[in-house]
Write a protein that binds this DNA or RNA. Structure first.
Length: 910
RNA sequence: GGGGGAUUAGCUCAGUUGGUUAGAGCGCUUGCUUGACAUGCAAGAGGUCGGCAGUUCGAAUCUGCCAUCUCCCA
């Protein structure tokens, strides 16, 4: 079943064709196959209304690579897809639409708003799945889950109730990050610190006990003066020691407030005197607590000031209030100066407005299993790749703070708590917490709030399977697929998501227990390996954003480079660092590599029959009994090396070298050297080496396609079929990728022993060819095959290698004839490990050019000899270094010396 | 203030337990329509591996200090 390859590769056609065939055949479906080892990845669920961006391309290309590799290794692979409801992000978008339509969620009411949100998510949802298919993602689409699915919501409620009953969830009144735009609390992780150009105001408050004496105070937030309930200085600050215990006048509303001493005050900041506004700042809140200062909340939920701020400020926006407060200070002659000041201000990540520390009653989660979560990573039960991210993870866990999980939003999972009607909500006696709700609903009202999105997505690895249902299917699947094999995600959500999944997995996927042993940890963790990749930025290192317009649409890139080209390109530039600088130039390599692959196969098709390719055994049998030529041996040796290299990369999760290994071997070794060398053997069908060259090519191409398939699934599938490697109705991914050791053994079984020493000699032949080409280039001789070369071999064995490969050397160096001679005079020559190669020039040689070239070479060799001799003359090197290293150095030095002698002789002869 | 990371060719980056004369892609220069491929082929220029000290027979690699940049947390 072979097809002739067209002259050009058409990704669009090939990609559509194969994705359809794959999906229809069900080959992406992950099922329990008890004889196979499971390999599971849960997709980091994208926002339901999101569209594919470059970050998704990288993240999902990586997951697909691991999943497809697992299939080739004979595992039962499951890549579980789904989407996240993205509570605040989606609500913000829907509210914007409502605003544009002249209405608001408040006007619609909860029920109708939720209808609109569902409409929105159904209308825009699923788009990203179509895009992921274009990318080639081999997810088990049948299983796709949405965090707002009924079953998933049930899991979330169950988890809440369970954690509540186990004492991890409590209600608390404290300062939260308040978003005045969305009017909800946010967790610390949802707040971005952004540098701001602001003003630092210096003002003065009069001392109550000493009329006429003032204390100078610096602040960036004069609009909160009305909430001041104290003034603080550092206890060691001699300047103000006498003031502690006295009072000063808050200018408006005029009120006496105490001066307290507290270590939280920075002596060197501003005047060293801090106004304390406990209801509007975390530090002030803590100071207020220590000194018993009252809390005065002067702000409304929407960020306007309220009546407590005084009549003139009532209803004023917080930013206007700042100006008004400054003006008022000025009019009271209390403002000393206003200087420019750069500071960091917290912004709501989603709504993009400055957050407001605000006193509020919320639900908190005291994280469960913190100790075990640390132990899981410290002991290597859960492994980060690259490893350094475990430091970031552990550092966060060591400084962990309770998590505010309630959100004053509507789009999301409603908190399963009911309060007795018309009663005090702060009193737990009036609470009902359950999945089912109270038996007499008419006497209760449900908490209006929903849960933080991450409080539902942290159950993703097991809730997707149906946890905590006791259905046999759910149990069997969890038994088989959980813990999942790995997680692939960006470093930016290690806190948001990764750590929280680990803790919830440890707490919820088994019985409630005081502490967990290592074996229990191993059974409960959500995944064993965490592959962390960087974030994609533009070529100047800026974040990709719609407003900058520096974020390319992946679908455009797919159109331009092909999905395979994009995948190869993006993986190729994704190093293990934290940022990935993207530019189109840098992924061209992917498209070019596809073209190369295509053409190499096309050349193979032109070179001979493809009729006996349909199994590895049949190809190997074609090699049985035939003696492998030098280049065949060399390229098979490189094939085995490359296969081994890639095995190691997958074992170690070091993907940054993957494309380099594949590229170097297929392009740099196979195409550039083997195919070119084989052309000599393929010239005549009567050449006994003809069949061997075809069999070697087929073996290399077959194995390469398998190795490349995880990175470039489409083109490899197309070529696999076209080259006759496939069998009717089967796909590349259903085949078994032989390991290097297995392949080597299978070859040996047929009497083909790949020999490394012989391979090294071919490297030397290549070196000689390069030298010949270099001389020709130096003399501007066109690389045609009409020159005459002379070679004087370095020794007997070199002579036989050169002789054995003479037609290849001719072909690759571009020579009509090559004569072996002992000595050659007055011709430009270059020295290689195998001997000296000379270019026969019909005209006289350019002595000056030649002198310069050889002089440079001589200098280089001289330096190398100095280094080598220095080492070997050093007794302690010879004594202490490993014998192999010393031996290597000796051999190297001898070779270099011989070369230098030869170059010196050439120079002399001029 | 606390913690992480980076610094290697013009640019973006490899360099895995320290061991030949430090590599790749892009860019640059030169020459090639060699019947697989100009999305290509060949040759070449370009680096005192941020600085200083230390450990070692041997350091881009390990340790310390310094400098610059960067990210995260407060």
């Amino acid at each position: 079943m072979t097809t002739e390859l067209s002259q050009n590769y058409d990704p669009a056609e090939v990609e559509t064709k194969w994705y359809k065939a794959w999906e229809e055949s069900g080959c992406f479906e992950g099922n329990i196959e008890s004889k196979k080892e499971p390999f599971t990845i849960m997709i980091p669920p994208p926002n339901v209304t999101g569209v594919l961006h470059m970050g998704h391309v990288l993240d999902n290309a990586l997951q697909d690579i691991f999943i497809r590799r697992a299939r080739l290794e004979g595992k039962s692979a499951l890549w579980f897809p789904g989407t996240d409801h993205a509570s605040i992000a989606t609500q913000v978008k829907v509210e914007k639409v409502l605003r544009d339509q002249g209405t608001s969620r408040q006007e619609l009411g909860r029920e109708r708003f939720l209808e609109r949100a569902w409409e929105w998510s159904e209308e825009h949802g699923g788009a990203i799945f179509k895009q992921l298919r274009k990318l080639g993602a081999s997810c088990d689409w049948r299983r796709s889950r949405f965090t707002m699915d009924d079953a998933y919501q049930l899991s979330v409620q169950h988890a809440f109730v369970e954690l509540y009953n186990r004492g991890y969830i409590y209600r608390g009144k404290r300062l939260v990050n308040w978003c005045p735009a969305s009017q909800t609390a946010l967790s610390n992780e949802e707040v971005d610190m952004r540098p701001q150009k602001g003003k630092l105001y210096k003002m003065r408050y009069e001392i109550l006990e000493e009329p006429g004496r003032f204390v100078e105070i610096s602040t960036t937030r004069p609009e909160t003066i009305m909430g001041d309930t104290g003034v603080a200085v550092h206890p060691d600050d001699a300047r103000y020691a006498d003031l502690v215990g006295k009072h000063c006048w808050r200018p408006f509303p005029r009120e006496k407030i105490p001066v307290v001493a507290d270590r939280a005050v920075e002596k060197d900041f501003g005047t060293g005197v801090l106004k304390v506004t406990p209801a509007h700042d975390q530090v002030d809140f803590d100071i207020g607590k220590r000194h018993g200062l009252p809390l005065i909340d002067v702000m409304n939920p929407d960020g306007t000031l309220n009546g407590l701020a005084g009549e003139e400020f009532d209803g004023m926006d917080r930013f206007d209030a700042r100006k008004a407060a400054v003006a008022k200070l000025e009019s009271l002659n209390l403002l000393i100066e206003a200087e420019d000041y750069d500071n960091n201000v917290g912004y709501s990540e989603r709504a993009g407005v400055p957050i407001e520390p605000r006193l509020s009653e919320q639900w908190y989660l005291k994280y469960p299993r913190v100790e075990e979560a640390k132990r899981a990573v410290a002991k290597g039960i859960v492994r980060f790749h690259p490893k350094r991210w475990e430091k970031v993870y552990l550092h966060w866990l060591n400084n962990i703070q309770d998590w505010c999980i309630s959100r004053q939003l509507w789009w999301g999972q409603r908190i399963p708590v009911w309060y007795r009607k018309d009663s005090d909500r702060s009193d737990p006696d009036n609470w009902h917490v359950s999945v089912e709700g109270p038996g007499d609903p008419e006497s209760w009202e449900q908490d209006e709030d929903v849960l933080d999105t991450w409080a539902s997505s942290n159950l993703w690895p097991f809730a997707t399977f149906g946890w905590p249902s006791s259905e046999p299917k759910v149990k069997a699947e969890l038994d088989y697929f959980y813990p999942t094999s790995m997680l692939v995600t960006g470093f930016d959500i290690i806190f948001f998501w990764v750590a929280r999944m680990i803790m919830s997995g440890l707490e919820l996927t088994g019985e409630a227990k005081d502490s967990l042993g290592d074996e229990e940890i191993e059974a409960r963790i959500p995944f064993k390996d965490i592959f962390i990749h960087g974030l994609i930025r533009d070529s100047k290192g800026r974040k990709m954003s719609k407003s900058l317009g520096n974020s390319p649409d992946p679908l455009d890139l797919i159109e331009k480079f092909g999905a395979d080209g994009l995948r190869f390109g993006i993986i190729n530039i994704a190093p293990s660092g934290s940022d990935i600088l993207f530019s189109e130039d840098r992924i061209e390599i992917g498209r070019n590599f596809c073209t190369k692959l295509w053409n190499a196969c096309r050349f193979r098709q032109m070179s001979g029959e493809l009729s006996s390719n349909d199994s590895l055994d049949r190809i190997l049998d074609r090699l049985a009994g035939s003696s492998l030529d030098g280049y065949g041996n060399w390229v098979l040796n490189r094939l085995l090396e490359t296969t081994r290299e890639i095995e190691n990369q997958f074992e170690r999760f070091e993907m940054h070298q993957l494309t380099h290994s594949l590229y170097r071997f297929f392009w740099g070794d196979f195409c550039d050297w083997y195919v070119e060398a084989a052309k000599a053997m393929l010239q005549s069908k009567n050449d006994p080496r003809h069949g061997v060259a075809l069999a070697v090519s087929d073996l290399v191409i077959r194995q390469s396609l398998q190795l490349l398939h995880p990175v470039m699934p489409f083109i490899t599938e197309e070529l696999w079929q076209a080259m006759g490697f496939g069998q009717e109705g089967s796909f590349l991914q259903d085949t078994c990728l032989p390991k290097a050791a297995e392949l080597s053994e299978a070859l040996a079984l047929r009497g083909v022993v790949v020999d490394e020493v012989g391979a090294r000699r071919i490297e030397e032949v290549n070196g000689l060819i390069s030298q010949a080409r270099a001389i020709k280039a130096e003399y501007n001789v066109a690389p045609k095959r009409d020159v005459v070369l002379f070679i004087s071999p370095a020794d007997e064995s070199s002579s036989s290698i050169v002789t054995a490969n003479l037609d290849t050397i001719k072909k690759l160096a571009g020579a009509a004839t090559i004569d072996l001679r002992d000595q050659v005079e007055n011709l430009p020559g270059a020295v290689s490990a195998l001997g000296t190669v000379y270019l026969d020039l019909s005209s006289a040689i350019d002595v000056e050019t030649e002198k310069e070239r050889l002089g440079k070479e001589l200098e280089k060799l001289g330096k190398a000899i100095q280094v080598g001799e220095g080492k070997l003359n050093n007794d302690s090197f010879v004594e202490k270094a490993p014998a192999a290293v010393v031996e290597g150095a000796r051999r190297q030095l001898a070779e270099t010396k011989a070369k230098r002698e030869e170059v010196a002789r050439l120079l002399e002869s001029l």
